[in-house]
């Protein structure tokens, strides 16, 4: 709270300047995290509540179970499902999206059904996937891939449809082959939207990863959490929750880094035009 008082006391001009310097900006972004952590630590320190164990014991369980202990196997198996399912979803989504873009009639004919599958709340498919594929590796990967494919697919299709016709005509005049123009004109132009789709797909994939492990599994983070919860091991449950939170945040962070690398030319161009968000 002290930095708040300081910036107020220093007056608006100085505060604005201070807020623009890099360390001050970092400090502004971080202090609330620190405050929340400290509040949680001391509020839960003497906690006798079964449901809200002290943060210190949660962190201890986090270290003993997930970093050095047996739960590492659950983490590895979850991440494996997630990675395989997500990669399949991304490749299939971009591939079929591009295919549908090139086949206009097929696209028009199937668009309502693709939309239906996109809007369908994917977790309802978990029981159906269990009856079809059992409760093993295949079921989870199929489920994650099937649920996560739609945002990428529809965004790919959509981004490609938005490509400027002039660019397509130009590439034709310049004698590019149709496939060459797909890779050198259409894909780059649609890239920002494809990336938006991939980001959505990632969130869906993480949710489906946990849901599938929760309902039917013998391994994975979801399985660990549900076992802990049903066994009244609330410290273990909280440690699993924190692991999930970390996975969500790290996945998001990695995605943003990759996106900035892959699309830096796009943001650069937008910044020149003065429309950078």
């Amino acid at each position: 709270m002290s930095s708040h008082d300081l910036s107020n006391a220093a007056g608006p001009g100085l505060a604005a300047r201070a807020a623009n310097s890099a360390p001050a900006r970092a400090l502004t972004r971080v202090w609330l995290f620190v405050v929340l952590f400290v509040v949680w630590w001391f509020w839960s320190a003497g906690s006798k509540s079964l449901y809200f164990p002290p943060l210190s014991s949660i962190l201890k369980a986090l270290w003993n179970q997930w970093v050095t202990g047996p739960a590492r196997a659950e983490l590895a198996s979850s991440l494996e499902h997630l990675l395989v399912g997500y990669v399949i979803a991304g490749l299939v989504g971009i591939g079929i999206g591009a295919l549908l873009w090139s086949l206009r009639y097929l696209r028009d004919a199937t668009s309502p059904y693709l939309y239906f599958l996109y809007v369908l709340p994917a977790p309802v498919l978990v029981p159906a996937a269990m009856t079809l594929f059992g409760i093993g590796f295949t079921m989870k990967v199929v489920l994650i891939a099937f649920a996560a494919v739609w945002p990428t697919l529809l965004n790919t299709l959509d981004g490609m449809r938005g490509v400027d016709q002039v660019k397509l005509d130009t590439s034709q005049v310049l004698g590019m082959s149709p496939l060459g123009s797909v890779f050198r004109v259409v894909l780059p132009a649609a890239a920002p939207q494809i990336v938006a789709g991939l980001r959505n797909s990632l969130q869906v994939a993480i949710i489906l990863m946990v849901v599938s492990e929760w309902v039917a599994s013998t391994d994975g983070i979801g399985y660990y959490i549900v076992t802990a919860q049903q066994g009244f091991d609330y410290v273990g449950m909280w440690s699993g929750i924190i692991v999930l939170a970390i996975i969500g945040t790290v996945a998001n962070l990695l995605f943003v880094l990759a996106e900035n690398r892959a699309l830096h030319w796009h943001y650069g161009a937008r910044a020149v035009e003065g429309t950078r968000p």
Binding site: V210, I225, M237, I241, L244, A245, I247, G248, T249
Partner: peptide, 11 residues
């Protein structure tokens, strides 16, 4: 926002 909601479900 990055926390999967399902993490909150057990709570």
């Amino acid at each position: 926002k990055a926390i999967p909601v399902i993490a909150i479900l057990p709570i």
